[in-house]
């Protein structure tokens, strides 16, 4: 009895310590970003560094929000991420439905092709894709960036939704078909509502991917009017001069929308992740 209690206590302490270590590992960089954003420039360079700001200030945020074009970059990122997410989810669900519910030659190959497309590294794709966008007249434009982002968000969304839709019994579709529903009606009125948690997860991941994307944003858009926040952040590193305070303030601002969405959609996400293809 005593031994069992001791084992449970040791296990409890181990789990608590392990969790604390993981939390520290994950949250320390974010803590450092936020704390640095609240320090004046000179204090950032003080040695030894201060764990808490000695003279907390919002000056870095004020500068970023009023004296740089960062708010515009955030707006551009939001537009691109929302458009990408919407299109990726719509195309993804249509493709996933076709692959899981319809019988046609080459179906398995298409499914594998989608994975292969997702696995291609952007560093290989960026020049061919540049040429494609150039011919379409979409370089240095937000639609061009959305199109570029669809090259990785659509395969991702499709692959995730294939897994999710497979968990939905086909009886539901068949019942609806017997009642005279068309395939599109089955998809939109039966499968989409049932797959809502899965769609939410896919949308969140697609949004996050588009929000955080760096390489394409750096190469395909360059005018200030269409730059996104990731490429805008690079502008705060001028050769060997890093404007750390502004960089950290801008990074904190960049974290907020994604964090808010994740917090709001947390329950749906867990449901979607445990029921879908990644369970």
């Amino acid at each position: 009895m005593v031994t069992g209690r001791r084992s449970r206590a040791i296990a409890g302490v181990s789990i608590a310590l392990g969790t604390a270590a993981l939390l520290l590992w994950s949250l320390l960089p974010i803590y450092w970003i936020v704390v640095t954003s609240l320090k004046p420039e000179k204090e950032i360079y003080d040695y030894p560094p201060t764990l808490l700001p000695q003279a907390p200030t919002l000056a870095q945020y004020h500068t970023v929000l009023t004296r740089t074009r960062f708010p515009l970059f955030v707006g551009n990122s939001a537009m691109v991420a929302l458009a990408t997410t919407f299109m990726a989810v719509v195309i993804g669900i249509l493709a996933a439905y076709a692959i899981t519910r319809m019988r046609f030659p080459g179906r398995a190959m298409v499914a594998r092709g989608i994975v292969a497309a997702y696995l291609l590294p952007p560093s290989l794709l960026f020049i061919p894709l540049f040429i494609v966008l150039q011919h379409l007249g979409l370089i240095d434009s937000l639609p061009g960036l959305v199109l570029a982002y669809l090259t990785f968000t659509v395969p991702f969304a499709t692959w995730m939704l294939i897994g999710y839709i497979r968990t939905i019994p086909t009886d539901l579709d068949e019942a609806a078909r017997i009642d005279g529903a068309s395939r599109m009606q089955v998809l939109w009125k039966i499968l989409v509502p049932v797959a809502a948690p899965g769609l939410t997860v896919v949308a969140l991941f697609a949004f996050t991917q588009a929000w955080n994307e760096f390489l394409y944003a750096l190469i395909y858009v360059y005018s200030d009017s269409v730059r996104t926040l990731t490429s805008g952040l690079v502008g705060m590193m001028m050769g060997d001069v890093f404007i750390w305070g502004q960089l950290m303030a801008a990074s904190t601002i960049a974290i907020v929308p994604v964090l808010a969405i994740y917090l709001v959609a947390q329950r749906t996400m867990v449901e979607g992740l445990t029921a879908g293809g990644v369970k």
């Binding site: 929302l82 989810v89 370089i139 937000l142 639609p143």
Partner: peptide, 21 residues
């Protein structure tokens, strides 16, 4: 779901309206 769809369409429309440079 419909409100999400509407938001998505709106975002896409704004983005596309920005047009190619």
């Amino acid at each position: 779901m419909r409100s999400w769809l509407r938001m998505g369409v709106a975002a896409m429309a704004i983005t596309l309206a920005a047009g190619a440079a």
